[in-house]
Every structure is written in structure tokens, then in C-alpha cells.
């Protein structure tokens, strides 16, 4: 359960104050598949960063499974990012000199209890995203869709509860975008919470829950018709 209460984030740039997030109160249950949409500058990436503990709210509270993140040290947040969240980025953010396997294995470096056979665990994740035969390829030798799948495998390797994806299809063509979205949907049906940020309406529309931000405020939440506990839930409070 992710719980945001009256979260605000302000960027000040000299005399300019940019209110990136205002009075955001959200409850995101496990197994939710949520899209956050909005125009550029609406605060959707800021919200995702706060959800993923990359950033701290200016004011308000953020609780993860009942724990207040404001009480956590930087190291505590790093541990949460390592264990609780998996990140997927628009530009993939793969290490160009590392092959697929070496990229996926990175979260284990920072894990307090990595598996006994990290390479096998890594290989399993690559199999899961359909890249069983691309293990030794460098990112430059892979297509955009394949690179994003490597990134998803990396996000999954520590078995996190929540996948956070910032414009995961932003750099991909329509067909590949759909493939990536299908993988994310599959992860959700496996039990993961998946939260994506997107500005593409057709991508957002495929997600059961769609939160729309404007000028840092939550202005709309679309819920699926048949809301039940098995596919999570989102509430704007």
C-alpha cells in the first residue's frame, strides 16, 4: 500500500516558485495498474520520483506499507529503491559497455541478500521478457524494444512489489510500445503494482486506472467499470 497525504513539492528557481505538486492525496493498493497522465510540466514525473523514493516531498506524508518515508535516512530510501521498487525509464538507461546479463545483474550489487546464483536468477528474468538468446549482447546491438525489455528485466530482478515506469514507450514505435505495455500488463496480472507515467492517450487508456494531473494537482481519476480487490485500487482522497 502506497499512501500519499497532502504531498507538495515546490521547486524554487531564484524568485520563481514552481509548484510541481500540490495537495496530492492518494492511496494505491497492491496489484494496481495505474497510468499517470498529464501535459508536460504537470508534475507526473515528480510524482513518480516521490513514489519511487528518488525524491522526498516538500510537505505532506508518504507512507509505504504503513511506514513513514520521512523518517527514513538516505540509506534507508536507497534500500527501499533496491528492494521495493523497480524502475523503467524512457531512455532505457542501460550501461552501454555491459551486456544484457551484466546490466540486469546490477541491482544485486546493492542488495543486502543477493541470490546464491545471481547469474541464473538474471538469466531467468531475461527469459521472462523474451530475451533468452540475447544475454551476451551489448545494448548497442539490441533494438529499442529489446533494450527496454532488458531494462524491465533489471527492474524485476530483485523481485520488487512495485514497477515504476517513466514514459516506458516514449522512445519506441507503436508496435513495440504495445509489446512493452503487454509485458507490463502481464507483470501486473502476476501480482505486481505497475505505475507508468505517459503522455500518450492510447497507452493510458489501456490501463485500468488513469490519474490525470494538471499544474501539479490531481484533477481526474478514471477507474475500471468492474472494480474489485483482485486488480488493486486507487483512491484520490
Amino acid at each position: 500500500m502506497l499512501y500519499l497525504n497532502q504531498v507538495e513539492k515546490v521547486y524554487s528557481n531564484g524568485s520563481n516558485r514552481i509548484e510541481a505538486l500540490q495537495e496530492i492525496s492518494l492511496k494505491i493498493s497492491p496489484h494496481t495498474f495505474l497510468a499517470i497522465q498529464g501535459k508536460s510540466g504537470s508534475g507526473k514525473t515528480t510524482l513518480l520520483n516521490i513514489l519511487g523514493c528518488l525524491d522526498r516531498p516538500e510537505s505532506g506524508a508518504y507512507q509505504i506499507d504503513g511506514e513513514d518515508t520521512s523518517l527514513k535516512s538516505d540509506n534507508g530510501l536507497a534500500a527501499l529503491r533496491n528492494k521495493k521498487f523497480g524502475f523503467v525509464f524512457q531512455s532505457f538507461n542501460l550501461m552501454p559497455r555491459f551486456n544484457a546479463l551484466e546490466n540486469v545483474i546490477i541491482p544485486f550489487i546493492y542488495s543486502p541478500n543477493p541470490p546464491g546464483r545471481p547469474k541464473e536468477a538474471t538469466q531467468q528474468m531475461l527469459n521472462k521478457v523474451g530475451l533468452s538468446d540475447r544475454t551476451k549482447h551489448l545494448p548497442g546491438e539490441l533494438s529499442g524494444g529489446q533494450q527496454q525489455r532488458v531494462a524491465i528485466a533489471r527492474a524485476l530482478v530483485n523481485n520488487p512489489d512495485v514497477i515504476l515506469a517513466d514514459e516506458p514507450t516514449g522512445a519506441l514505435d507503436n508496435q513495440t510500445s504495445q509489446e512493452i505495455l503487454d509485458i507490463l500488463a502481464e507483470l501486473n496480472s502476476d501480482g505486481k503494482t505497475v505505475i507508468i507515467v505517459t503522455h500518450e492517450k492510447d497507452i493510458a487508456q489501456q490501463c485500468p486506472y488513469v490519474l490525470t494531473l494538471s499544474d501539479g494537482r490531481a484533477i481526474d481519476l478514471k477507474k475500471p467499470g468492474n472494480e474489485n480487490l483482485s486488480n488493486g485500487g486507487v483512491n484520490v482522497l
Binding site: 536507497a78 528492494k83 546493492y110
Partner: peptide, 16 residues
């Protein structure tokens, strides 16, 4: 810098 940001996102602590 992006690599460092990524490593932090993947759970690297400051001392890592």
C-alpha cells in the same frame, strides 16, 4: 552522472 543516477535508482547508497 546518468550512470550514477541510475545506480542510485537501483539502490546504491551514497557510500556505494
Amino acid at each position: 552522472i546518468r550512470e550514477i543516477g541510475l545506480r542510485k535508482a537501483l539502490g546504491a547508497r551514497n557510500k556505494d
